[in-house]
Design a binder for these strands. Structure first.
Lengths: 221, 221
DNA sequence: TTTTATAATACGGATGTCCGTAAGGAATTG
DNA sequence: CAATTCCTTACGGACATCCGTATTATAAAA
């Protein structure tokens, strides 16, 4: 079992709940931060001090306030940490239950567990901690389809960028120009439309308006 | 100060935090529920027993699970309660910080305070409780512009319905037909476009795609 | 290098959107 | 009652989108 754990969560009340839980599990060193940047610095320092954290439990979304932050979300934080310290286990503990987001976190960034905050959230968190300590990954029931589902729909960065530009209200011509300026390829109007048509099919959308509405609900943009 | 308070919040960890806070404020009777329906029943019963609650603190969003619920959100609950028991004070305690939603809750349903969950959420909650006990309304800083802002943009039910149909991917012709079937007036394509143009201006949208993206972000649909 | 496959671009036509103007109705006011 | 105002509806032109097909470019295989 883990002996040194960091909890990154902006809301003080939730933070307290998780802290209590970890104490009950017999974990000796439990530290808490309310900002992603603090989490990164603490983890970095602990490594330099030869006493690294074994586990990070972090929320996904952090309210922004006056403090300027390098990492704006648990996603940014997890991505950066897994690149530098791949040995560090990371559990995401968030209310978010969008499958696509979970899929990215697991497949692309390599996080170890994803637990949805809910009525039984703390109990799920226990399961996750136990699984991760055995080098397993864990997904709480709400999102466990994220991996099982074979339809790894392969939404590329290009698709996301296209959807963003659409949602900002740019026409196909304008998006084509923007892509050319930013050296994003393919950039022709025709290719953009072709890619959009694929998205129509994938998301069962009737038109561009519908498409943007759907991917907004999915949390892709 | 209040002596009998009900807390309605699905997440157990947060619920615990609020409970502790109320205890520290010296409130004697504090009860907790994790479902809106339970809140409604408890409040109703307390009235029948001639020992009514004076204050309800409720979250806005509740995760749905196997239990069938009459009230799906704190909004539904607050609306129903204010109709039947207008004397009951209601504080909404939610992460949601969409101005338009707060505005509706205050102006239409008559809730007494709105506190955004955040790093300082519990401290704001104290202020809200004190204000409400003096028959004042309270809004935490994140949303206090909801009332001061004169631009009560007057988004009508018609507008919301139109935006919904757009987001579902229907063409103007189809929406016109739908409106005619449902006796929603005006229903001509021309009028629908005219109304849409107003929305373009209000939300500074470039086209329908952009418009739907914006109102989705605002939480209007 | 040539052949083949794959991806990117160009183009055209049917349809939909955007936006201005104008005509017809209903309610308000003098 | 007529006049005015406000709202709904109708129509048309410029433009954008959607979607099919055809052509060109790029990369991989023979």
């Amino acid at each position: 079992m883990f002996t040194k754990v960091l909890v990154s969560e902006d809301m003080d009340d939730i933070n307290k709940g998780v802290y209590t839980l970890l104490s009950e599990l017999g974990i000796k060193e439990i530290h808490q931060v309310q900002y992603c940047d603090d989490a990164y610095l603490k983890i970095k320092k602990a490594v330099l001090d030869a006493a690294p954290y074994q586990l990070l439990i972090t929320d996904l979304y952090f309210k922004t306030d006056h403090r300027e932050q390098r990492f704006l979300s648990g996603e940014d934080l997890a991505k950066a940490l897994k690149e530098v310290y791949p040995a560090l286990k990371i559990i995401i503990y968030s209310v978010e239950d969008k499958i696509q987001k979970v899929r990215t976190l697991i497949n692309t960034y390599g996080i170890d567990a994803y637990v949805c905050k809910s009525r039984r959230g703390l109990k799920e968190l226990i399961k996750a901690i136990e699984a991760v300590s055995k080098n397993q990954t864990y997904l709480s029931p709400e999102v466990e389809t994220a991996l099982s589902k074979k339809t790894d729909l392969e939404i590329s960065d290009y698709d996301i960028e296209l959807l963003k530009q659409l949602s900002l209200g740019y026409s196909k011509d304008e998006i084509s120009e923007i892509f050319k300026k930013n050296s994003i390829t393919p950039s022709s109007v025709s290719s953009i439309e072709k890619r959009q048509n694929k998205l129509f099919i994938q998301f069962k959308a009737n038109n561009a308006i519908n498409l943007v509405a759907i991917v907004k609900d999915l949390g892709l943009i």
